[in-house]
Amino acid sequence: MKEHGSSHNGHKAQSSEHGLRLKVGLAEMLKGGVIMDVMNVEQAKIAEQAGAVAVMALERVPAMIRAEGGVARMANPKLIREIIAAVSIPVMAKARIGHFAEAQILQELGVDFIDESEVLTPADEAHHIDKHAFKTPFVCGARDLGEALRRIAEGAAMIRTKGEAGTGDVVHAVKHMRQIVQEMKSLTVLSDQELYVAAKEHRAPYELVSMVAKTGKLPVPNFSAGGIATPADAALMMQLGAESVFVGSGIFMKERATPLDVECDATGQLNNPAERAEAESRAKAIVIATTHYNDPKTLAEASEQVTGTMKGLAVAGLDESQLLQTRGW
């Protein structure tokens, strides 16, 4: 946390305190917006056109990863470069949990945010990436406050709920958001001496626990992801305290598709104008709903525009072993 004084004549030397502020600064700029999963240049352009604040470049959306199985890894750098060249908004990409070499590659490509994501197959069963070692900011998933604070201690500049990706079922995004918000609220009424035990129970650094106890909120922006599929889902998460939403499979999947039959060419170019129009209408409606989350009249209008919502997969019907959210610790 040493202050290195001001940089000289545009010199790029930045102290670590500056580095963290710049990372969180970009997260601040993304507030109140929608970050959309995209698998090709065309989808990235549709997302930008619809008003997304950023895109997440992926080879397969979570619903496809769920359906197809296998090891899910970082996207091909060529795809990421193409998407970076195609849009003017920030581009994010996912690295496997603990896979710092994938993260180094993503930083080299000029990705604006790295998602150390449970949606990909973890590369390390004990360690997450040391995110302080990077200039590029990281977002990480969390199911409770302790997990969120452990990720922040490792250098994450943004937290998102894990939810259950690729299902189109918002129930666990709600569960995780409520859990984090409730745990933050409970910290605010504890005395100083009780905070030491709270830190132990949350398995998180005392300094961060004490910071949350003072402010009642995370020291970095708190976004939501995992199963958000409709404008109403986005509004729900915003009203529960999310500062932005990530939308994955809910936009670029074929009408009524479930995560188990997505092999019906969801990756393909959206040549069919009807499919393209559907994806656009879903994307726009979720963007509108995220800004006007507190305005039911506008939400009704936005929801009306949506055709062909993802059929989805109820999380309650999934086996424990099929859950992505239990990856990471």
Partner: peptide, 15 residues
Amino acid sequence: ERNAYGRQIDSSIEE
């Protein structure tokens, strides 16, 4: 000119 200084990795704090 938008994004004239580059991407996030080129973001900086100056005086």
